[in-house]
Design a binder for these strands. Structure first.
Lengths: 193, 193
DNA sequence: TTCAAATATAAACATTTGTTGATGTAAAAT
DNA sequence: ATTTTACATCAACAAATGTTTATATTTGAA
């Protein structure tokens, strides 16, 4: 009654392959081939191809929600909260780049009813970010702005982060990453004199 | 020897469907069904399914390159150039939201050798943006920053734009959009006192 | 009217794909 | 020693899918 090590290996191989070829383009046979066993054996580890996608997507989504919830619940000021959310994104992207890539690129391949629940989670996350920004404006930390636009822009601006960890080439320093991104989000590109 | 109106209708239907379901999930039969004719008739308008993707992707990419090239060639200062690039993105996204959505979501489905040429175009576009930022730093308009990170962040931050035009719900005012985005990219969220 | 181009259908094709069922073997637990 | 449990194969399936070939109808230009 183990079903742990080999299953996890299967899932990691799936994840890697889906990242390389996309979810639809990755066949069960592709995964099995890389695992060096027959297709049918795959179904000793998962119930369906969709399961693979759902597993990673909801698991990683929860990780992001958990992080932002803790930050929102804290007593830090809004600017510090935003900084920490950005930091959390960098950390998750650094630790689980393939999972984050999946979240960015493959969530549209979920089927109902999972698709709808996942979209809800995304919308909820946006609302949490919007709340953070709204509080920041109210408290005088952030300037007046269109919250909807700012939310979309900030979330979008950190969506590429996984790139710097899936590509070996770049390998950006997380500390520098955070400093630069926080700098840009907080103060923009313009030099003040 | 017309082959214009109907072909264009076929392509637009394809585009719409690909946006709804994704490229892989959209079958030739899906498109034909929505056009109210048999699958085989589709091949009077295109040579292959891949052709549809290639057509829109390269056509729209060219539009973006054309815009940024003109801006880079101009005599405006760097901050004004960046403003105009952002403006161009908003305009293209407003005019051709489905094409832009395709660029964001489906380019991975290109096959070699088109895939490689397209990736080259993307890399080239990033280089043009990086050049703009580097000039801005050198001329003292922009602050010192990691160009690689700033390029990725800014391009990513405007990638969601098509959303506000494919969703009917939002329908953001392009003028307000530009004002807000330029405000955030230039000065960030922080209120200065 | 004639003729070619545009537009359409029907039938079939070769693959690919997710999944199942029956079955076998090696290892671990009882 | 025996029975589970984990891990694996083989064969086959039904459905889906991109594409081709042959053929027909409609339409606009000569």
């Amino acid at each position: 009654m183990n079903l742990g090590s080999k299953k996890e290996a299967f899932l990691q191989t799936s994840l890697q392959l889906i990242h390389e070829k996309g979810f639809k383009a990755t066949t069960m046979r592709d995964i099995a081939e890389r695992m060096n066993f027959d297709v049918s054996n795959s179904y000793n580890y998962i119930r369906s191809k969709q399961d693979i996608l759902e597993l990673f997507l909801f698991r990683t989504s929860e990780e992001f929600h958990h992080a932002i919830d803790n930050i929102l619940d804290s007593n830090y000021a809004s600017d510090e909260k935003l900084k920490q959310v950005i930091s959390a994104h960098i950390q998750v992207a650094a630790k689980k780049p393939l999972e984050v890539a999946l979240m960015v690129n493959e969530w549209r391949n979920l089927k109902e009813p999972k698709y709808s629940s996942y979209v809800e989670l995304r919308v909820l996350y946006e609302k949490k970010m919007a709340k953070l920004l709204r509080e920041g404006v109210k408290s005088g930390k952030f300037k007046e702005m269109n919250i909807k636009i700012a939310t979309a822009l900030i979330l979008s601006s950190i969506r590429w982060l996984y790139d710097s960890y899936t590509d070996e080439n770049s390998a950006l320093n997380p500390v520098e990453l955070e400093r630069e991104i926080v700098g840009l989000v907080f103060n923009g590109v313009l030099l003040k004199h």
